[in-house]
Computed example of a mutant assay.
Amino acid sequence: MDELGISRLKARLSGWQKPEFNGVWPANRAAMNAFLAAASQWRTTVFPEGGQLRTMWIGLDYAGATAAWERLGLDVPAETFAGVQVLEMAARTSLNGGED
Rank of each mutant, 00 (worst) to 15 (best):
F47N: 07
K10Q: 11
M32L: 07
F21Y: 07
N33M: 10
A31G: 01
R12C: 01
E49T: 05
R43E: 15
L53M: 12
S40L: 09
V84A: 01
T45L: 07
S7W: 11
V76T: 03
R12T: 06
D100Y: 13
Y62G: 04
G64A: 04
Q41L: 08
G51Q: 06
N22T: 05
E79D: 15
A91V: 12
A38N: 05
R54K: 15
A78P: 08
F47T: 14
G64P: 02
F81Q: 05
F81Y: 07
D2T: 09
G50R: 07
V24K: 02
N33P: 04
Q52K: 14
R54G: 02
G98Q: 14
M1E: 07
W69A: 00
V46P: 06
L4I: 10
Q41I: 11
M32W: 15
R92L: 05
K18T: 11
G98L: 13
N33R: 08
L74T: 09
P77E: 15
G51S: 13
Y62Q: 04
M1A: 14
L74F: 14
T80H: 00
E3D: 15
L53S: 11
E20F: 01
D61V: 09
M89E: 13
D2I: 04
S14D: 00
F81S: 04
P26Y: 00
G59V: 00
M32H: 09
A39C: 12
L36K: 08
S94Q: 12
E20C: 00
P26T: 04
R8A: 11
T93Y: 12
A82Y: 02
N96I: 01
A27H: 08
L60A: 02
A63E: 09
G50F: 04
F21D: 06
P19F: 01
G23F: 06
R92H: 13
E79A: 15
D75I: 10
A82S: 14
L36F: 10
L74G: 08
W25T: 07
G23V: 02
W25P: 00
G23Q: 02
L95N: 05
M89S: 11
G15E: 08
L95H: 02
E88L: 09
L60T: 01
T93E: 15
W69S: 00
I58F: 03
A67R: 12
T44L: 08
T66E: 12
L60M: 03
I58A: 03
S40D: 14
K18M: 03
G50V: 05
E88C: 11
G97E: 03
R29V: 05
F81A: 09
A30N: 02
N22K: 11
